[in-house]
Design a protein around this nucleic acid. Structure first.
Lengths: 343, 343
DNA sequence: ATTATTTACGAAATCGCTTTCGAGAAATCC
DNA sequence: GGATTTCTCGAAAGCGATTTCGTAAATAAT
């Protein structure tokens, strides 16, 4: 049994291809008798129209490309989940590509996707920070070519398109404020995403919360870390030098690891040191004590992206006017922070 | 600026479409002069050949469909990661579809994918258990239509195709044996995947290990649980009735939750009760104590699937002869189990 | 000078499908 | 019975590329 085409069916009944096509579309142009036999034959032999040919004719593929830096990151998986959910509901499938934080890969991926394989793109660009000029051009091409584009989380200001971002400044503020409210005096900030704008925004929120309490910002309390760094080693300085009683960790895994180190050193969480992490995922709920986290509502972000994009694809949105949707975060209070004093 | 086609370029230079096509392919048939100007124009205007049209002529899409039950499950994400990795290396992109454990969705997805949108399929079928007859037909169609297919993890015996599976029986055996070796006498098994074959296989391994030690299998120690069940409530019976000193949990989240409950009830892990979980993911490493887990090497499974599939697509494998690759698990010993006595 | 061979390009087929248009035959009308 | 409408179907164009084949002109060979 081999893939059936219209032509095959046509020659089987000695009719023309157009007749078969119309018959299968139940066109009134075809007599009931002929329609019936063709439809039956098609069904019996599991005929399915070739998608690629259809895509060509319709100049649409009913699929959207999703480009994310890393699929092992729970946040992105959540976003992907949200995207896939509404895409599916609205009849689209998704082509997912991970860039592994590599600019080159991202460029190649975009190159590939923007040549007709998808009707639109949702991307969280690794280039949001270290944007080279050529890469910027690359993305600009996409919007120039009228390919609907939605950027999320790691967006580029220079690109004019729909965006869905997290209110990271407010999140940093909210988290810091909570620590202060629950009695923390000296709050360190562990930053595993030091090169990103979202990292800077969160630090901005941190600073604002400190300022509000007239606490001087201490540069030394902000600790940039790279993936390869020995967290334990780096933290030891701070822990020895400063009298830390609160820590903000800018992603989940760092929060978890930091807490592990703190506990191993004999501190009690939250009584000696309270911790708040960013990007609520699977881990934080199950570590001991359960971590208080900033949730970014990844799935919601994904849904929003997908809806925006599909609206754009189907020309439901107003052409030319792009929106930036800011998704608020939530503070999920668990046991790595003290309770707010009732007073 | 709008999408450029060969025709556009052709009419711009008043040449034929074929000339342009050849020029862009640097064909010797075209004079250097003409080639140069066409190539320059194409580059300046960011011409990119339409993928869909190419797919049609080449009768290949250079993309593979991946169908998984759930993307929020770390195991599947790992597999996806592995697939994406080698697919990418070998020049394929992936269309990922999640079925949410819904048979209907899976059917629809397969229907969609098997009509030319992809060159091959990798699937972990939710129907591996509750396989209705029509669904089976559905999947059979795929192999009948010569669409290369690789099934993994949740495979269907009735389907003749390449498969990558986990040695679940051996895994169950290995885990149980380790618990016995470290002094456990009464081992409960918490089964959150009671309807699946892999669940049964793991239980098979559990039984074999018990038998080897001449321990009678006690039906009551095997606890099936459903997603909606109150685990704490269900566990209370066992904990009260039996003198449990070891627990096997058939997935990660259940292992973590079970340990939480055990600890909350005042048992010490691993001294009072040791725990081994299945499907090593992100959680187990960071909970306290860190969980001893059976790792299924998701990423490796993904890589294997992708390589097999692409070999098949590119006719590197022998047609007609399908292989089933059994991937061995590893026991990752952490702190939720006692150490093997030296003797 | 005649023939043979490149060179350089265009026409046309093809991939599989949709859709418009045209046209013969049958059915309806006046 | 002739004109018109309705049925039913096929031919052909088009989607955007590749590729085979044909051919005129230019060059080379005899």
């Amino acid at each position: 049994m081999i893939k059936l085409t219209l032509k095959d069916i046509a020659s089987h009944f000695s009719v023309s291809v157009s007749t078969v096509s119309k018959a299968l579309h139940d066109s009134h142009e075809i007599s009931g008798e002929v329609k019936k036999k063709i439809q039956k034959f098609a069904k019996d032999n599991h005929y399915r129209p070739n998608k690629v040919a259809l895509n060509l004719v319709n100049r649409s593929t009913k699929s959207i490309g999703v480009v994310i830096p890393n699929i092992l990151n729970y946040f992105f998986v959540q976003v992907l989940y949200g995207i896939e959910k509404v895409a599916n509901e609205r009849g689209y499938s998704i082509i997912s590509c991970v860039t592994d934080h590599s600019l080159k890969k991202e460029t190649m991926t975009l190159e590939m996707l923007s040549s007709g394989s998808v009707d639109g793109l949702i991307i969280s660009s690794v280039a949001s920070e270290r944007q080279t000029k050529t890469h910027l051009e690359n993305i600009k091409d996409i919007v120039d070519y009228q390919i609907p584009l939605v950027m999320f989380d790691r967006v580029m200001d220079a690109i004019d398109c729909d965006k869905v971002i997290v209110d990271d400044l407010e999140a940093g503020y909210k988290a810091t404020k909570y620590l202060l409210d629950t009695g923390c005096k000296t709050i360190a900030l562990v930053n595993p995403i030091c090169k990103t704008k979202i990292g800077r925004l969160r630090i901005g929120g941190y600073k604002r919360a400190l300022k509000e309490r007239n606490i001087d910002f201490d540069e030394k309390l902000v600790i940039p870390i790279e993936p390869k760094d020995d967290l334990d080693f780096i933290l030891s300085f701070i822990l020895n030098d400063k009298n830390i009683d609160g820590i903000l960790a800018l992603d989940e895994i760092t929060a978890v690891k930091t807490m592990g180190i703190i506990k191993a050193r004999g501190y009690h969480v939250p009584n000696d040191i309270a911790i708040i992490g960013f990007t609520n995922g699977q881990l934080s709920k199950y570590v001991t004590p359960a971590l208080t986290m900033i949730s970014q509502h990844g799935s919601y972000i994904g849904e929003t992206c997908a809806n925006r994009l599909i609206d754009r694809i189907e020309s439901i949105s107003t052409p030319g006017v792009y929106e930036t949707k800011v998704v608020k975060t939530s503070l999920i209070v668990r046991d790595s922070t003290r309770k707010i004093p009732l007073g």
